[in-house]
Write a protein that binds this DNA or RNA. Structure first.
Lengths: 325, 325
DNA sequence: GTACTTTACGTAAACGTTTACAATACCCTA
DNA sequence: TAGGGTATTGTAAACGTTTACGTAAAGTAC
């Protein structure tokens, strides 16, 4: 049988209260001598705290729940690293709940699990809940924060890159390089996609460009490959892609049909993960600071007031050609 | 205040025992009428079960803990998908504990967290614990299983590919294609690496090849790039790489110095993730079935006796050249 | 010595469930 | 009607902690 504080108390001749105080380090309430004795006996017995009992009496667990989508893009390790790091600085554990791929049922289950565990905060990364789940979260009294998704609703916490800024910066850069026939590819039809479209169109407008070209997709490599087909009859000179994976798909499919990047087609991808280095040529990207997004989201959900938008930067690699005017 | 079964009991005029029975679906112990009433009231009150209380009295939580390394390789989504799917079939929740990158302290913390939560099983993916942690696990009485790592110790559960088979198959294939100067690159110095070396050397020996060439690394893209430098003075015609990322690194660094793949150098990578499609040329790989590794590991840890080794297969893509003899 | 303060510890209630056991209600049969 | 069974519900203990409150012991000051 697993030893409890009762066993330790019996063995050391003190009450369970004292054992508890020592074990949970309520310093100043016990003598060094008893501390030493209890710690020794606890070790001897191989004692482990029962988290369930602790959480039951404390009514809140020192744990942040991260609900994660199985996105075909791979930004998540950066985000998680950031979350993990900051959470452990704040004395919080982290549990990750997996919500499949836009699977409403799994998502709901994950949210309920988090609520039933009365975690101290919920982080939803790249997740768009339906209204029912959103009210569920709101009514729970547990703070939650969207990560890498900006809902643009009052009083809803969120940490992400500024999607409008991402695409408008990409447009600015491409225009600077002489491009005017610029497409946006692989975007989703939800909040993120909508915001990126807004930034894209604002960017074009600012430069007096009137023709836009938008293709939807799902952030995956395969999606990128398919999208290239749609671009074949079009005469764009540059494409901004919704993810590195989309860019990689377009790039490879293009090369297969003899379109050279960047000579015949320029590509600016959004994300800036290691994928950008793996392709040939390397992908110029609007790079997001996923680590910082993760760490700031922990601050948000723990009630520290920090920035909602984390800055992005353009990293020039090899997939954009400077056009002569 | 969050409602409890007590509140429901009070409102519906039954005892908490009955409420509990309805809510935990002890079918046959309550009437349909009370069930309906209790369910309705529970919904009205926005009741949520308190997991801590449940776990406390049940002494075991219906949760599998997955302890995860931040490997520079990206096989984990496949593994996790498999784990998640199978776990939910078996009515188990999944929590993921992140152990950083070969960070003994974080790993220890993760293991302790899992034990303190008295989970029903612990899955260690791509993790090699030190002796202290291993005894900790053994003494805990909680079943644990290594995933994607084979320790080759009696009575230790494990699900992985057969590392010896991976490299020997790779050697077989390369020899078949006419190669005899075959290197192994990016391997680690621990169990996985050792096993792959064994398979590699056995493979060479089986074909009467006496010269071997082994370079160590850490599975990352950068590590692959560095490794290429070491191969420059050597005259190997083919390299088996420890991961797709290593292969990508070697490939790109090679192309930068004018070595063409596969014309001048053939590459067989281990893993077979999407990375193999992203590089130019595509990487021929020994592909692991990560999804199945994940799902089988759940079976293992839940006490079902399943295979330890999950088969791999060679997928021929574009990075191996057939040599004339 | 008393009176007071501080330190260290003990007692017992509380957290929200589950479940063994006991009790009641109901139905059926003879 | 009694007797027996079954279906449904209630009572109360248990799970392993934390912590408010009380108390004993030890120290301090006069």
């Amino acid at each position: 049988m697993k030893p409890t504080i009762k066993d330790i108390a019996a063995r050391s001749g003190v009450s369970i209260a004292t054992v508890s105080r020592v074990l949970s380090q309520k310093t100043g309430t016990y003598s060094e001598k008893t501390q030493a004795k209890i710690l020794r006996i606890a070790k001897e017995l191989g004692y482990r705290k029962n988290t369930a009992a602790v959480e039951l009496v404390k009514k809140r667990s020192a744990v942040i729940a991260v609900i994660l989508n199985a996105t075909p893009t791979n930004f998540s390790t950066g985000v998680i690293d950031g979350i993990q790091k900051r959470a452990s600085e704040l004395g919080q554990g982290v549990i990750i709940l997996y919500a499949g791929n836009r699977d409403a049922q799994m998502l709901h289950k994950a949210i309920v699990t988090a609520l039933e565990r009365t975690v101290s905060g919920i982080l939803l990364t790249a997740i768009e809940p339906d209204d029912a789940d959103l009210t569920l979260l709101k009514d729970s009294g547990i703070p939650f924060c969207f990560v890498s998704l900006y809902l643009n609703q009052p009083k809803i916490l969120s940490v992400s890159s500024n999607n409008e800024s991402i695409t408008s910066q990409a447009v600015d850069y491409l225009v600077e390089q002489g491009h005017t026939a610029i497409a946006l590819a692989g975007i989703d039809g939800y909040h993120t996609g909508t915001q990126r479209i807004a930034g894209y169109e604002a960017g074009l407008k600012a430069h007096g460009i009137t023709t836009s070209c938008i293709k939807y997709g799902d952030y995956s490599y395969e999606s990128g490959r398919k999208l290239l087909q749609e671009f074949l009859p079009l005469k764009v000179t540059a494409i901004i892609t919704a993810s590195d994976m989309i860019a990689a798909g377009i790039l490879n499919a293009a090369q297969e049909v003899g379109i050279r990047v960047p000579e015949d087609l320029s590509l600016v991808s959004i994300d800036g993960t290691i994928i950008c280095n793996i392709t040939t040529p390397d992908l110029t990207s609007v790079t997001q600071d996923f680590y910082r997004i993760g760490s700031r989201s922990v601050d948000q959900v723990m009630g520290h007031d920090v920035e909602t938008f984390v800055p992005v930067k353009i990293e020039k690699r090899g997939s954009v050609k400077q056009l002569e005017r």
